[in-house]
Design a binder for these strands. Sequence first.
DNA 1: AGACCATGTGATCGTTCGCACACCGGAGTG
DNA 2: CACTCCGGTGTGCGAACGATCACATGGTCT
Lengths: 274, 274
Amino acid sequence: MNTDMNLATNIFPVSRSLAQERHDLIVSEVRTRGSVRVTELATLLDVSDMTIRRDLDVLDEAGALVKVHGGAKVSTDHAADQPSFDAKSNTQTAEKQAIARAAAEFVRGGATIGLMAGTTTWRLAGELAAIPNLTVVTNSMRVAEVFNEFWRADRNIILTGGVRTPSDALVGPIAATALAALHVDTLFIGVHGMSERAGFTTPNILESDTNRAFIQASGRKIVLADHSKWGVTGLSSFANLSDADVLITDDKLSADAAAVLANQIPDVRQVSGS
Amino acid sequence: MNTDMNLATNIFPVSRSLAQERHDLIVSEVRTRGSVRVTELATLLDVSDMTIRRDLDVLDEAGALVKVHGGAKVSTDHAADQPSFDAKSNTQTAEKQAIARAAAEFVRGGATIGLMAGTTTWRLAGELAAIPNLTVVTNSMRVAEVFNEFWRADRNIILTGGVRTPSDALVGPIAATALAALHVDTLFIGVHGMSERAGFTTPNILESDTNRAFIQASGRKIVLADHSKWGVTGLSSFANLSDADVLITDDKLSADAAAVLANQIPDVRQVSGS
DNA sequence: AGACCATGTGATCGTTCGCACACCGGAGTG
DNA sequence: CACTCCGGTGTGCGAACGATCACATGGTCT
């Protein structure tokens, strides 16, 4: 047992990541979260903090971010733009971020994915910055903006159109018509509430229609919902729990709730938000 | 992954140039995964790393990927060179503002209007803040954002959807379909260039299609174009001069040009930009 | 056969990374 | 007040890894 440790660590040739990859990841991390600490990045990327510092030096030099004591933050010319850090997107931040990161694992380069409107899916958009060759369909202007921010030729961003709700979803007949003509491999669903009886819900009835159309247009359906969504019922249901193929939530979800969900959804994952 | 390679090598004793196949596989690998390391490819393709390096040299040279230390990553080709929105929005500011203000005079409360993408129409959006009871159809995210910023219950903002061009127009079949189902009283048209021969033009051919659909969906057509647009011809024409009902421009337009325009457009107005 | 091309080999040189160590300033603590 | 601990930072060096070159090899083309 104890001798296996050396073996195990040596068998896999450490699969060190390319420096460039690290850089991309660091930048996207900084862009989505506003700031990062050196030690976080070191454990996240599994390299020494010295390496992270050197990376930050380079990226700072290149203007991609600004080094500060303890880590790095977004470079100022980039910082002023987003008015989007309002009340809603600040709740359960760590959990949502962790969920978004776990969700990003499901996306491979070259895929066609759908991102429903929502704060968690918005964070997911940031996590997808480094993935090449994506086609993304979304009904959220904010999500679209994330991708527009760093434009890439290998990226195809499609906005459904429609009327914008206060929570930033484009809805209505235009959205529905657009979605009817499209098909995505994987759809990431943000919800307002979920419960055993009502399934997945949203407070906005128009949004509900659009969500249904989106689900209709998709293959694999992945729901992103932190624990605070459990037991919440919005005005309008748009899917049953069993419609989801995967649910990603955090580890603060009660065991009861997890059991109910696992009973209806083939793949339920709980990630740690800390 | 694909094991055809091994098969091929066994059946055909290297009769064909395998290099091409390796290249294809390397590129697709990079495209789907974002990055690869030389050693991975070497074992995957069962050739020496030297060969892989040479392959990467070629592919880098060809622009299919970018070599980095340890491997290669996708090239984020920034080749598309249309004037981006930010670059454009700073030119002829005073004139555009004056034109926008004059255009706002055409909008009465309760109207249904269309705003094409463009910097002048974007400014017009700002001028329309005070007008009650509007329904606005636009294919520009930035225009939509202006209205979203101060949300009003008596306002209906409809976004066409589509794929976003660098100059912030949503285009493509989704936009066209959405527009086909709509009708606006008054359409405000921003142009990239106008000339006697080519009429109204844009550098982006997709945008051109969408613009035509927009025009099709509208009653009165008002073109906003400062004097610098005269004589400029973009790649693609989307309307004749005579299709416009009103043209609003500034007083720096030459008398000749004004005469030509007045000959084809019933109502040509020149406003002062200072 | 001889030129030719793609590929592998080994030597050499450049890069990257982790570790050990030193520095620097702030918060306790005696 | 001096003293020490502590987290963050930077430097130097060695080891491992990657890049590159020159050359050898073993096939194909004419």
